[in-house]
Design a protein around this nucleic acid. Structure first.
Lengths: 336, 336
DNA sequence: CGGTTTGCTGGGATCGGTCACGGAAAAGCA
DNA sequence: TGCTTTTCCGTGACCGATCCCAGCAAACCG
């Protein structure tokens, strides 16, 4: 009835139910303001007509969008997709849409962010991941009063969620020490400008823990961020009289490169060489790599939670640090 | 000037520029309808005021949302995240937002889909991935005239984008045959109800290709969808006098289980046993697994492209079949 | 039984734009 | 100069809700 295949509006419902549109609106939003009889009648008419409130109209009237934006270099770094899953989980219960904004690279953060925001206006808040956000951008965002939560980045005006890289570094070092290793290598990523501070903190923690053991020898080296480059670098690192008995790499793929290098040199892993990765991505599990697990999903859900609170009016800025856990697989063991 | 920290509206711009709001609107939307002088003046005022058209208002007035929804079991099957990346790529150039709708499982498709749509109304179109969409849902969607593109699913009213599983099965079989294998195993996933037809097609293609070689022996078996279960199943499959010299698994993780089983049995891979996976996920690369690569990202971008066309008015339904390619790594070789 | 309280409902302004139309000014032409 | 065309711009009707506020009737009170 009365279905010219046009979606029903609140007016249609009101008319069919013999009430005014505000009553229909109330039924939907403040049910207790409406008499039970009217309510059921309206409700019934509503679903007879297949009425669905138009989100666009609601948003306009309420001056909000019911949408949060998630900005990250998704297509460049797949790990952000895992964080995104966390965001989805955290918002599942709420009537909140997630709007994606892909960034080519964290390095080019400012311009896409500024450029794309204007295009399709408005969100209620933003989760910005992996972007060393530019001061001017920060300024703009803040001046609009837009709630923003940063993940994997620092800021002194927005809430941030970070991995405890320093602590993770310490933990990894402690683990290797506890196994009995005393000659230890560390392979970091060269030119990871986007994540410089992150890498520095991780290595810093690693160093700090080792510092307690003056007898320990640490050899550090760098490689481009590919497995092949890591292999090369590891080949050099492992070639020599006092080669390390354990190597930690800045992330899983690099560690896998080390594993390959070891195989090439005829070293048994973990017998002759322990290898420890970082991230616990899918590759780590497949390869049986011992590694440090970053709570990717959790960082997403925590950030989303903070953002939701901020949108809800919370003004208290918060800095969250998330712990990493060690995952022991088949590439680490006491030195022989 | 005139900045009570409230975002500027079109009215503010109009007033400051001494024109009417429709002129401002025209400047933005149909610049050639406005005299050059006026245009520049308006434009200048606009950015002095930091004016940004509100997306919500535009959407309401235009009766569209500028948003497409992507429905998939993201948090259950990470491969959908890769497809999502494809969607992002395809829509990057357009002023289109992506709205995420996570589904717990493809199996429970209908209810979340119906349930969540009402909550936050409206999108211009939907990409539904991995959901054997229910007839009634299909009906509802279609009756609203909402453009829908299905990925990894069948339908006789919406456009679909599928992987050519049959062809991929053939190709895999041909590859193993060409290597010289004659006793071949196939490990499929048990109870993959969501993807039954997909799995069937893949195995079907595999069989069809082998059929041309009457001398070939095919042994099929099943396992739950975990690496451990695959290991068990493979143990049984490989235990016996006439064990296969090559095994293909329905996806990478299963194949990895086979690799483990082989190691356990003291079989050399690929010397004694070739193992072929499917998907080419991150695990495959890490483990050096030969596999069949599914064009995940491409399926996403193709689907997004079709959807955009449909939203643009194209009514022609289209069925796309995407090819897989073989990735040769270190787990396949001629039989010894 | 008049006056107050309480509970429900409706009126109407508002959100910030889009767009079809129409009218006035400017330009073209005889 | 008078009339027709163009070119530009403004008027005003939506789009589909939310939500404040006022009106009104029934219930309550003494």
């Amino acid at each position: 009835m009365t279905d010219p295949s046009k979606p029903a509006t609140i007016y249609d419902v009101a008319e069919h139910a013999g009430v005014s549109i505000s009553t229909v609106s109330n039924v939907l939003n403040k049910p207790d303001r409406v008499a039970a009889a009217t309510r059921t009648r309206v409700l019934q008419v509503a679903d007879e007509l297949g009425y669905l409130p138009k989100a666009t109209a609601i948003d306009l009237a309420r001056k909000q969008t019911g949408r949060i934006g998630v900005v990250a270099p998704f297509s460049t770094y797949p790990s952000y997709l895992r964080r995104l899953v966390g965001v989805m989980r955290a918002t599942r219960a709420q009537p909140v849409d997630i709007s994606l904004i892909d960034q080519e690279s964290a390095a080019t953060a400012s311009s896409p962010l500024l450029a794309s925001m204007p295009i399709r206006g408005v969100v209620d808040g933003l989760v910005v991941m992996g972007a060393p956000i530019e001061a001017s951008t920060e300024e703009r965002l803040a001046s609009r009063g837009l709630p923003v939560v940063l993940v994997d980045a620092d800021s002194d005006r927005f809430s941030v969620v970070n991995i405890d890289d320093h602590g993770a570094g310490r933990r990894a070092a402690r683990y290797l020490l506890d196994l009995g290793h005393r000659r230890i290598g560390y392979l970091s990523e060269a030119q990871a400008s986007d994540y410089e501070s992150q890498a520095r903190r991780r290595l810093g923690g690693f160093r700090d823990e080792l510092a307690a053991h003056p007898d320990v020898v640490l050899a550090t080296t760098q490689a481009e961020g590919t497995m092949a480059a890591a292999r090369e670098a590891a080949l050099a690192l492992l070639d020599g009289p006092d080669r390390p008995t354990a190597v930690m790499a800045h992330f899983d793929d690099l560690a896998l490169g080390v594993v390959h290098a070891a195989a090439e040199l005829g070293l048994d892993v973990p017998g002759d060489l322990s290898v420890l990765g970082f991230d616990d991505g899918p590759a780590a599990e497949a390869a049986g790599l011992s590694t440090v697990r970053q709570p990717f999903e959790e960082s997403g859900s925590v950030a989303a939670g903070l953002l939701l609170e901020a949108i809800g009016g919370a003004t208290q800025r918060r800095m969250t640090l998330l712990d990493c856990t060690l995952v022991e697989r088949r590439t680490t063991a006491p030195p022989r």
